[in-house]
């Protein structure tokens, strides 16, 4: 399977869609997310089980593989950090 992404903006769109789908957030709410929007600890919907679902769904949609030892608090701290992490895996 070959997945080609035009750039970070497409990864960002995917991360937004995954957060909306998994956490059951409205499109308006995720559309308002900026790079500084805090995620883990700030969104009550994002508990540890939801983290697992978000990461696995990102793997499926972006065709990436996230190693268990890469999962830490920093990548989930803000929306920008999560997009950056996903882009670093997808845009190689």
């Amino acid at each position: 399977m070959l997945v080609i992404f035009e750039g970070t903006s497409q990864v960002e769109t995917t991360v937004r869609a995954v957060l909306a789908d998994i956490l059951g957030l409205s499109a308006d709410r995720v559309a308002a997310f900026t790079a500084d929007t805090p995620l883990f600890g700030a969104l009550p919907e994002l508990d540890s089980m939801a983290v697992a679902s978000v990461l696995t769904e990102l793997e499926d949609r972006l065709g990436i593989l996230i190693e268990d030892d890469e999962i830490d608090g920093e990548m989930l701290e803000t929306f920008g950090a999560l997009v950056q992490f996903a882009a670093s895996k997808a845009l190689v």
Binding site: D21, E45, A50, R61
Partner: peptide, 23 residues
Amino acid sequence: ESDPRDADVKYAASPLWRRSEPD
């Protein structure tokens, strides 16, 4: 549709099986 794997048919919808709360 969000799933890149092969299928006979694809539908645009959100994956309920990964929802943090059942819906």
